[in-house]
């Protein structure tokens, strides 16, 4: 043999896998008998999500069922992902009203700035996560879709602890 191979002399307790295996099995067994369950039987069971969860949007409406939005243009201005399209116009009574209000939920990064900036408390991010669609177009929510959504909306801060302390 041209090269001398040095064989290290290791103590058996370091080399044996038996100890490590038993250690792993012990951990597994510990979790097997642990009464605290982590797995949820989705979709029959659902996780309780945080009141500050920020999901897909919802447009709140007045008592007459009209969107509260007055097309002030603050949400498209503040939106860092540029996902809100707004064309202002007038409604039947001559009030300022959005002619087009579309949110591209694919582009949205769910920062919640739109809700925070809205002076009319009209646009909200929702406490909702089941957004599957059959088409890409389905992810561009128009005003009709936004007002029709019924899921609860995000509370930007915890009412118990408004300053987040």
């Amino acid at each position: 043999m041209p090269i001398n191979i040095k064989v290290l002399d290791r103590p058996i307790e370091d080399v044996s896998y038996l100890k490590a295996t038993l250690k792993g099995m012990a951990l597994t067994f510990k979790h097997l008998v642990n009464p605290h369950k982590v797995t949820v039987q989705y979709p029959e069971e659902k996780w309780q999500i945080s009141p500050r969860w920020r999901g897909t949007h919802r447009m709140l409406t007045t008592e007459t069922g009209k969107a509260k939005c007055v097309a002030c243009g603050l949400c498209p201005t503040v939106c860092p992902a540029n996902c809100i399209k707004l064309v202002p116009g007038e409604d039947e009574e001559g009030n300022r009203y959005p002619l087009i209000f579309e949110i591209d939920e694919f582009r949205c990064i769910f920062c919640g700035y739109c809700q925070e900036v809205c002076p009319e408390e009209a646009i909200h991010v929702g406490r909702h996560y089941e957004n599957a669609e059959y088409s890409r177009e389905g992810f561009v929510y128009d005003l009709e879709r936004l007002t029709a959504q019924t899921h609860p909306v995000c509370e930007m801060w915890d009412p118990e602890d408004p300053r987040g302390e």
Partner: peptide, 9 residues
């Protein structure tokens, strides 16, 4: 110009 655009746009 009424309700057509915002000044910053």
């Amino acid at each position: 110009f009424l309700n057509k655009a915002r000044a910053w746009e």
